[in-house]
Write a protein that binds this DNA or RNA. Structure first.
Lengths: 207, 207
DNA sequence: AAGCTATGTGTACACTTGTTCACATGTGTG
DNA sequence: CACACATGTGAACAAGTGTACACATAGCTT
């Protein structure tokens, strides 16, 4: 093979993963992808697949790990940008929407995986969401933004927030990538949702 | 054919639809089902499929219609049982959970379809949810349970409620069918979510 | 320099897939 | 009765599928 030497280690692995994401981005559902299809999209021979993944499920699991990185990057940015802002919710939702746009396929994969075919992918995504919610709870506690809630109630609130945002994903991803008007509507509506939740949390009684 | 005469009209059609649901109930994702697979599960020859459906997408669409019926039945029951109750939210969530258990495959299909492969199925389910939310808004208005909100804000609230319940579906359906303890937890958590949302709604300002 | 390992390739096979076609049969309509 | 129609059947096909095997080569370890 002329140029096999040029390939960095793990390059094919990445090609396969992003090939799967590309197909998802094109509207396919992850559960309906086949090994041959993915390798074809990656420009690689089918056998190569097995060098890196045991099965499609396995590939899905590794995508979940990468998804975790994307989410963490997003949280970091949100934390940085939001500290000196008075429009906390609005800003955060904005950052979320921006990241969802920038990593469309990833979030598409996440939305699909929540009710997906692979139990382990499902559990992985769910666990990422739990992590996200607990980080959010930490931040709110640390910034003294929510002080009257018990730990359990704060968790409840953050869980609800994360779910709401995650559900907005399906709205966001079902509209065209460059329909800024519609995107704005979703963003605004999501913001309102969160505002209402936090109003509820601030008037919440007993734990 | 010996017994073809016995078959009621539309019987095969139903067999195909419930075969698809059965497969979904067994953990498969609708997007990954094939025509042959469904006909095999239905105990019917592949060609028969085309007598009733143009494609898998078509079958999905017709399932969405039936899903609509299931939802309407659920609403009717909720309306009947809830009128004379003081624990409105708790009761409603209970009814929802019961229906989700009784029609597991249907709701599984619904949860999958929200981020599914077929644009039209996606839109269909979304539209069922909108309908559900608007009915809920009507009821709340009619029962004078929410009087201080503008129409738009009431819609917002009901939308949020429906989303929250729909998301609970993914929790509910990812745990074992007869794990009553876990089911109870989800039910309780969902109830709390809704209570918090309504607390938020009742303290909501301006439209 | 020799050999091991990770990675990539090509071929092959048995199986499944979607779809088409010609045909059978029970039901309702003229 | 005869005829059209809806429904169901079976055989056939080209294309696509997952996976196994033997082989090539680059880079590391000794």
């Amino acid at each position: 093979m002329a140029d096999r030497t040029r390939r960095k280690p793990g390059e094919t692995r990445e090609k396969l993963m992003s090939a799967a994401l590309t197909l998802v981005g094109k509207g396919r559902h992850f559960a309906s992808l086949g090994i041959r299809e993915v390798t074809r999209q990656a420009g690689v021979v089918p056998t190569s697949f097995y060098r890196h993944f045991r099965s499609m499920d396995d590939l899905g699991l590794q995508l979940v790990d990468e998804l975790g990185l994307v989410l963490r990057r997003m949280m970091r940015e949100a934390r940085a940008n939001v500290l000196q802002s008075d429009k906390l919710i609005e800003e955060s939702v904005g950052i979320f929407v921006a990241h969802a746009q920038a990593n469309r396929s990833f979030f598409l994969f996440m939305a699909q995986g929540l009710a997906g075919e692979s139990r382990s992918v499902q559990e992985g995504i769910r666990s990422e969401m739990r992590f996200f919610a607990s980080e959010l709870a930490n931040d709110l506690r640390r910034l003294r933004l929510v002080t009257h809630l018990s730990d359990a109630d704060l968790d409840l609130t953050c869980d609800l927030v994360v779910r709401t945002v995650a559900f907005s994903l399906t709205d966001l991803l079902s509209i065209s990538e460059d329909d800024d008007y519609q995107i704005g509507l979703v963003q605004q509506r999501t913001t309102r949702f969160l505002q209402m939740i936090f109003v509820g949390a601030s008037h919440w009684q007993r734990g």
